[in-house]
């Protein structure tokens, strides 16, 4: 703790992130489900919906190529959930109060907390990419595209992690974060993640998917896999992720201030 008080801000962030990452690594069971579950779902969906690639206008030859973007999104969701729950645990267990006694800046606290979530997001993203390639998915945008894909999925993980952080700070309990989780999934399922938007038959569904920002995040990742360099798709995806990061970070900072004042 004393080391922390005299350190400059980057060191503070490093210490807190290291703590978050260690917490994650120390409980490997916590990592298995979030990483395996999306892969199982991918396998099942790839087999179940492969027939859809026969539809005229379907943008990929294999549903696996098309759906590879989904695990990245789910990995980001789980990272956000875990990060949010860790933070909620700190709040419930009083660790946050202890940190509040130190001259630690709020920004460092948030960045450190996010570090843990991002670490997990990155690990799972690399894994999904490797599994995809191993099962014959070609990255249309090439090796550089794969790098951008990891970068984009990191940005998306950050966006959701900021949301998770905000929920944890506002709600202050693990249940509040857990209760939010289904909403993340609703956002994913009511997007263009499982079907190309222009092939969705039902008008109401297409409308929801069009207004759902998750659609654009998925489409950004997908464009790198199935169509190569698509400037517009990438720009939209990065823009939405960045807006979400900035917005939720600002909200989190405010929530953190009230929480530190209140407690």
């Amino acid at each position: 703790m004393t080391a922390l008080t005299h350190s400059p801000m980057p060191a503070q962030v490093g210490l807190l992130a290291a703590r978050a990452i260690k917490g994650t690594l120390r409980n490997p069971a916590q990592m298995v489900f979030p990483i395996v579950f999306p892969l199982v779902l991918l396998a099942v969906n790839a087999a179940g919906l492969d027939a859809a690639t026969d539809l005229p206008g379907f943008p990929a030859d294999s549903y696996l190529d098309f759906a590879l973007a989904i695990p990245f999104m789910q990995g980001a969701l789980f990272a956000a959930l875990n990060g949010g729950q860790d933070l909620a645990r700190d709040i419930e267990g009083g660790f946050l109060d202890r940190l509040a006694m130190t001259p630690l800046s709020g920004a460092a606290l948030l960045a450190g907390q996010l570090g843990g979530a991002l670490f997990m997001g990155l690990i799972s993203a690399v894994l999904y990419l490797a599994v995809g390639v191993a099962f014959g998915v070609g990255i249309a945008a090439g090796a550089g595209g794969a790098l951008v894909l990891l970068l984009l999925s990191l940005a998306i993980s950050s966006a959701f992690a900021c949301l998770g952080t905000f929920v944890a700070l506002r709600g202050g309990t693990g249940e509040a974060v857990q209760g939010f989780f289904p909403l993340f999934f609703v956002l994913l399922f009511l997007s263009s993640a499982f079907f190309p938007r222009d092939l969705i038959e039902h008008e109401w569904f297409r409308t929801i998917a069009t207004y759902n920002p998750v659609s654009y995040m998925v489409e950004g990742i997908r464009s790198l896999v199935i169509s190569g360099w698509d400037g517009q798709a990438l720009a939209q995806a990065f823009a939405i992720a960045l807006i979400a990061i900035v917005g939720f970070l600002a909200l989190s900072a405010r929530a953190l201030r009230t929480r530190l004042v209140r407690t």
């Binding site: 919906l49 859809a52 539809l55 969705i200 569904f205």
Partner: peptide
């Protein structure tokens, strides 16, 4: 709602 197009596959 989201996957109904798949019924348009010939088989």
């Amino acid at each position: 709602g989201g996957l109904s197009s798949v019924q348009n596959v010939p088989e």
